[in-house]
Every structure is written in C-alpha cells, then in structure tokens.
Design a protein around this nucleic acid. Structure first.
Length: 579
RNA sequence: CGGAAUGUAGCGCAGUUUGGUAGCGCACUGUGUUCGGGUCGCAGGGGUCGCAGGUUCAAAUCCUGUCAUUCCGACCA
C-alpha cells in the first residue's frame, strides 16, 4: 500500500476525551474515530488488525472442530421470552420495535438464537457433539461506555456454542475450547490468565474469563491470584480464607451505650476503642425495588455481584438512597440516621448475612436509635439469627488462597475471552432436545464461548506500546513492514525503495511504502506512532548500496544491502507467523 | 441513576468574568524554501460559536429550557 493513497490521518495531539493508552493511540494514530458514545468507525488500519484477530480466531476454532455460521443481529422478543431473559437481561439489552410494533432486540449475545438453530436442526445424538460459532458485531447498551474499544457499546465478538448429549461431553467440549483460547491469545501476542468468574446474565455454573494482565490503569477488573498454585479468580467470584481476627467482644452482657456522631464503622471503632471486626455492619440495599438488609462483619466489604446472585435479583441492585432509608425508617417507626440502622425490628423485610457474621459473639450493632449502639450483643438472645447466609464478601489481597493457603495477590486485568458451562439453562426452557441412543428425548447440554475481537486488539495496544506509539505484534499488525524513501525527490532512494517494495510484495509480505512528499521526521514519527513492526529506510546510505533495517519492538538498527533487508524481513515475518 | 464539568473550523484550544460584527496552533489549498526524527516564510479556504426560546439598539458572552459529550460516583450506613 502506498502511504500517499492510504486513508489515514494521524493527529499531532492526543484526543482530549481519551482516558486509556489504547484509546489515545488508536485515535491519534488514525485507527478509529468515534461516531457516538461507545460506537466507533474502524478505519483501514484498524480493520486490517481486526481481520487478523478474526483470522487467527477462525483458524483455531476450525481446528478445534467448530463450524462457522452467521446469525441475525436483530432478534425477536419471543425467543427471549422462552429463555426467560427478556425480563432478566436488564437495561443493557437494546430493545427496539419494528414498524408493526413487534418487539425485537439488538443481539448482545446469541444463546437464544443458536438454541433455536439446534432445536430445528439436531434430531439425534449421532449429530453430537456440535460446536457452532460466528464473528459479528454485538450491541450492549452499557451504563457507561469508556476506554475506547475496551468498553464500547457496539463491538465485534466471536461467540461459539457447544451442544453435547451429557455433562461429560460438555466438559470435554469446554476443555477443547479452553485450549483453543490459550492458543488464540498467544498467537495475538497476549499472555492471558484464565480466572474463575461469575457467569452473570449468561448463566451456568462453571465459567472462566481470559484476562490480559495490565500494569496500567486500564484494566477494569480486579483479579485475585495465587503465586503458589493455579488459583485465579475475578473479584466477583474470588473466595479466600481469612486471617485470624477478633470476632468476639469482651462484654459479658448486652447493653446500650452512647455513641454520638459515629456514622461510620471507622468512627464507631475508634470511639469504642475496639477492632472493626467485632461490629456487625448493617447496610440497606434496594434489590429490584425491594429494600433488603445486608449484614457483614464491620471490617469487610460487600461484593455486589455476589449479593445480587445470592438474592436472585434480576434487574438491579444498589445501596439505598438517604431518602429511601428515611422512608423505610418511618414505616417501621424508627428515626435512625444511616450509621445507626440495625437488623432488629425488621421482621417484614428480607435480611441476608455474609458468612463472616456467623462467628460474631458479643458484638456491636446499631439498634435504630441515633447516637446509640448495643455492645455485647448475641444472635438468638438480643437479635434473631438471620435466616439467610451467603458468601457476600469482597476478597482483599493478603487473605489466603482457598486452594493452598498462601496469601493472594491482586492485579488489574482486561477480560478478552469468556467461557461458560451452561448445562441445560437454555435447552430445557426452550425445549431444545434430541433423541438419545436409548430412544429417550433429552435436552442439549450446552457451553458458550466468547472472544471480544475488538477488545483483544485494544488489549494488545495496552500491552505493546511505548511513548512514541504502538508496537504491534507482527501477527496482528496492519502491515508487517514499512519502506521509507527519506526523500522522494532523490531518484536513487526512490528507485531502491520501490524495488524493495515490489520484492516484498512478491514474497507475500504486507508492506507499506511511505511515498508521501514529506520530511523524514514526519515519516519516522508516523511509522512509530502507527506501530509497524519492521522498517526499511532508503536514505543517504543508498550511495554505498545500503539501507537501514529497524525493528520497532527493540529499536535495533542494522545497515544492510536491499536484498539482505528483503530477505531479513521475509524470514522475520515468516518466523513470527509460524509461531 | 446521582454529582461535576464541557460544547467555538477536521484535531487541540483562547475569547464568556466586563455584551459591540469570531481568533490562535496543528491539519487543509497555492507558492517558495528546507530535506535523516513532527523545517521556515508568504498567500488562501473553512465556523448560523450544540440546539431552541428570551433579555437587549446589539448576544459566543447574560437568562431559561433542551440535547450531546466527558469525568467522578453509583461499595460500608
């Protein structure tokens, strides 16, 4: 490709609204432009990168025995009602009506559709196992899109779905996908960590996320992991063993004490000169519009995804506003401010407690009176034992690994892939069945497997860049090499550059030639910014029959003859692609 | 959804306090100059100042509404 003809505009400045590295560089280097909030145009260089990520994904999926199809982007409400997700998916599901008033949605994922496909097309166990996948734009109406391609509303995703006759088959399919995923990301130049995660709106029991570990600010999830074993889990799924803590107070009977102006756990603990771990914290949440009291040990934090799952909440979960708390107090005849709310006297609303609450003895709790707490309280005596317990606790670094007991560490990660064991979550309600060997009708046992194609490309930028620009891994770079004639007025430079350009093309190398009538500095800056992995410069040294070969990744520069340069590039590219 | 901020040329911004016919840098066009890390000069083109109302002799500037974008929060009671 001739740079003089390439549809590309690089910017002198970073865009003002970009937060993270990949967003900044992709816009500045002319890969993407925003159309509207969370929605981007993919310009020629970006589209080449995306096609490469897709190609690698296709190859590995095909190798793993999956078959590519393409399902509609617009989906009818009826199928979503069959699966029960029309109500359950929430506001991220972009709902639209057609001219007849028929309700549809933009596909955020395709479990319903693919289950329909299998229901129609698979009759017998002889047709199983089956794995169908597609690569397509998805739409999720995110609350807050950000970080450019890392969290857009419209994005490109590969989604695959496996169908098996039993759980053992599903587990085998799952393992095959897990292995394929590791290879896909490796080939894209990304080291990933599979971590246990919450399965969220997709459903199912077992799921893993493939996380690219980032040192930067752009990771959006906290990953807890153990150096001594293979344990790794997203914060919404991580569990841990707690270090020893004081969970019993020294009072020998319950009594009210004045605790003026102790609105927070920290203030209360300081005032009473006690550890936070003997306080029973009581939070008011609103789950699907209903108030819920949540109890947890004072020094611990509620993990809201866990809470949502424990409550079985469908739409949303959030802490109650001050107004909602006031209303709740009024209804029960209490006048307590936040900070003085306790579980006693709320027989008519749901109360759920974290497992840490079980151990509390002679603890401190609020009793719905301002500036007063009870110390030395016990369940069963001073307040009813909560009926529901669950793990609601956010793990913290330094707590102990549930597998091997060593301290856990935390890091930021970008989720680029996600695999789920769905079981029969969709096949049963949607009546998707096959006839098994014994003649009986059975539901498919399913798995589903996603890769964020556009997010993977952005994650690669997060991992491969320096202050000058992007440093693409060769396998997904838009072009492998750029040939720069320093001065296009110089006939000899131009002639040699053109010759190299042609030879490389003949060898099947993807090559740019910077034939723009610009100064050398401009061309070098652009080459670095857009991140082409290899560079051949035809400048002054052509007088001596030499050109310069430069590797973007290392900055290493070598002078060699044009033929040697061609040969080196061909070999380097070949080696990189065969990895 | 709550809080804050911002909308002025393709991009980055000034001008708004104190109302008086819209500016800078980059990019773009022409031309000269320069030519190995974002040359320098000259001459140009491009904006109903987000939109709609209002106040005023006069509004980018003041007022009201509205839309959009961005940031923070939506986790401790």
């Amino acid at each position: 490709m001739r740079m003089s003809r390439l549809f590309l505009e690089t910017l002198r400045d970073f865009p003002a609204d970009a937060e993270c590295t990949s967003h900044k560089f992709l816009v500045r280097a002319g890969y993407i432009r925003k159309l509207t909030n969370g929605i981007y145009n993919y310009l020629p260089l970006m589209w080449r990168v995306l096609k490469k990520v897709e190609k690698i994904t296709r190859e590995e999926m095909d190798n793993a025995g999956a078959q590519e199809i393409l399902m509609p982007f617009l989906q009818p409400k009826e199928l979503w009602e069959e699966s029960g997700r029309w109500g359950a998916y929430g506001k991220e599901l972009m709902r639209v009506k057609d001219r007849h008033g028929k309700e549809m949605c933009l596909g955020p994922t395709h479990e319903e559709i693919v289950t329909f496909v299998a229901r129609e097309g698979v009759r017998s166990y002889k047709q199983l196992p089956l794995n169908l996948y597609q690569i397509q734009s998805k739409f999720r109406d995110e609350i807050r899109p950000r970080f450019g391609l890392l969290r857009g509303r419209e994005f490109i995703m590969k989604d695959a779905y496996s169908f098996d006759r039993d759980v053992a088959g599903m587990e085998k399919s799952y393992k095959i996908m897990a292995d394929a995923y590791t290879r896909i990301f490796e080939r894209c130049g990304l080291v990933t960590k599979p971590v246990q995660s919450d399965s969220g709106a997709i459903g199912g029991n077992v799921s893993h996320e493939y996380m690219v570990i980032t040192q930067t600010d752009s990771g959006e999830d906290n990953v807890f992991y153990c150096d001594d074993c293979d344990y790794a889990a997203n914060s919404n799924h991580a569990i841990s063993n707690l270090p020893e803590a004081v969970t019993a107070g020294e009072w020998n009977k319950a009594e009210k004490v004045a605790t003026p102006d102790t609105g927070s756990i920290k203030e209360l603990a300081e005032f009473l000169k006690i550890p936070e771990s003997i306080i029973c914290k009581c939070l008011v949440y609103i789950a699907d519009k209903e108030p819920v009291l949540v109890l947890i040990r004072g020094d611990k934090t509620v993990e809201e995804t866990k809470l949502m799952n424990a409550l079985g909440a469908k739409e949303e979960i959030r802490t109650a506003s001050d107004a909602e708390i006031a209303e709740l107090m009024d209804k029960h005849g209490f006048g307590a401010r936040p900070g003085f709310i306790g579980p006693k006297g709320f027989d008519d609303i749901r109360i759920i407690a974290d497992n840490t609450v079980k151990e509390l003895k002679n603890f401190v709790m609020a009793v719905n009176e301002n500036d007063v707490h009870v110390v030395g309280a016990n369940f069963g005596i001073d307040v009813d034992m909560p009926k529901e317990f669950a793990d609601l606790r956010l793990v913290e670094a330094g707590e102990f690994c549930p597998q091997c007991g060593k301290p856990l560490k935390v890091t930021r990660g970008i989720e680029v892939g996600n695999i789920f064991q769905l079981g029969t979550k969709y096949s049963v309600p949607m009546g998707a069945t096959f006839t098994d060997e014994d003649g009986s009708e059975k539901p498919f046992v399913m798995g589903c497997y996603g890769i964020g194609i556009s997010r993977t490309a952005a994650a690669a930028v997060e991992r491969h860049h320096d202050e000058h620009g992007i440093k693409w891994p060769i396998a997904i770079a838009p072009y492998h090499v750029t040939v720069i004639p320093v001065n296009i007025q110089d006939e000899m430079q131009m002639k040699i550059a053109e010759e190299i350009y042609e030879k490389l093309q003949k060898e099947g190398v993807e090559v740019l030639i910077d034939d723009r009538d610009d100064r050398a500095g401009v061309k070098f800056k652009d080459a670095d910014l857009i991140g082409i992995p290899l560079r051949i410069t035809a400048g002054k040294t052509v007088q001596e029959g030499l050109v310069e070969y430069k590797v973007r990744e290392t900055g290493e520069v070598t002078k060699m003859t044009p033929d040697e340069a061609v040969k080196t590039v061909v070999e380097t590219v070949k080696a990189a692609l065969n990895k």
